[in-house]
């Protein structure tokens, strides 16, 4: 356990000293800026009670999307270099001969990357809620479970990227993680397009894609947790009902199992490769 914590703290220390907090700061500005722009938009129709009720809620929903995006990108960026880059630069040679197992290196890197990405995601979430409270006067504490699900985004993408990093070069790792994110993102438009235009093949592809990178389960789970603030008309629409049904318990379980399986695969692959 000590080796894992040592490697995790080294990863964290390096991340901080590489001034990645500057990127974090810029993302924070983007979150605050997003709320500010929404507030500005709503102020144009200050007397419309519907606008004043809907805009803060939409801001929260879309704001969490922004946080998800930054959290995932942050985790992917850190994880892509965690092992691949250290092998390429020869950093791991002076570590791997030490009395430790390779799985400890993978778990240490995983922990270090995720702690930083999760702390940032949490910070941006708090910032989003605080900005909505300060600028729009709304507090949505009843949605507190949604940000917790949002934290699973960096976990999912960070773990997947770390897995790529155990066998691919840095460049290939980045490419593979972008492709994975693309696959995950494509599911929703593919399904919607297939259903709207009645293209069964497309719907079938979307149905299969969601198991490759199970991001859509998380997205629907976040929406489920946000259901109390989703505008009623939107909730009642047939389209919403068709595409955004809450994930079943086993689908949520699949996400956790998926992360665990990918992490174990990363340990297995790194344990068996030549460095």
């Amino acid at each position: 356990m000590r080796a894992i914590l040592l490697i995790a703290s080294l990863t964290l220390k390096e991340t901080l000293r590489r001034r990645l907090w500057v990127a974090s700061l810029l993302a924070s500005l983007a979150v605050v800026g997003f709320v500010f722009v929404a507030k500005l938009g709503a102020s144009v129709r200050a007397n419309d009670p519907i606008v004043q009720s809907v805009v803060p809620r939409i801001t929260l929903i879309l704001g969490l999307d922004v946080v998800k995006f930054f959290g995932s990108v942050m985790a992917m960026t850190l994880a892509s270099g965690a092992i691949a880059l250290e092998i390429e630069r020869g950093m791991l040679y002076a570590i791997l001969y030490k009395p430790l197992h390779r799985y400890q290196v993978v778990l240490g890197k995983w922990l270090g990357v995720l702690v930083f990405a999760l702390l940032n995601t949490l910070f941006w979430t708090v910032l989003l809620y605080a900005s909505i409270r300060l600028m729009m006067g709304k507090t949505y504490l009843e949605t507190w479970r949604a940000p917790l699900v949002v934290l699973l985004y960096p976990v999912l993408f960070g773990t997947l990227t770390l897995f790529f990093s155990t066998f691919a070069s840095m460049g290939l790792t980045v490419a593979l993680s972008i492709i994975s994110a693309g696959i995950a993102w494509s599911e929703k438009p593919m399904r919607e397009f297939g259903m709207v235009f009645d293209i069964e093949t497309l719907v079938n592809v979307a149905n299969n894609v969601r198991w490759i990178v199970p991001m859509n389960h998380l997205r629907r789970w976040v929406l489920e947790e946000l259901s109390v603030v989703i505008p009623e008309r939107m909730m009642m629409s047939q389209r919403f009902q068709a595409f955004e049904s809450p994930p079943a318990g086993w689908e949520v379980g699949y996400v956790f199992g998926y992360v665990l399986a990918v992490l174990m695969l990363a340990v297995l692959v790194f344990g068996r490769r030549d460095v």
Partner: peptide, 17 residues
């Protein structure tokens, strides 16, 4: 492993430490 010390030929340390 505890009894081995190694200096690699091509290496780079975590240079922000």
């Amino acid at each position: 492993r505890r009894r081995i010390g190694f200096l690699p030929e091509k290496f780079q340390f975590h240079d922000l430490l």
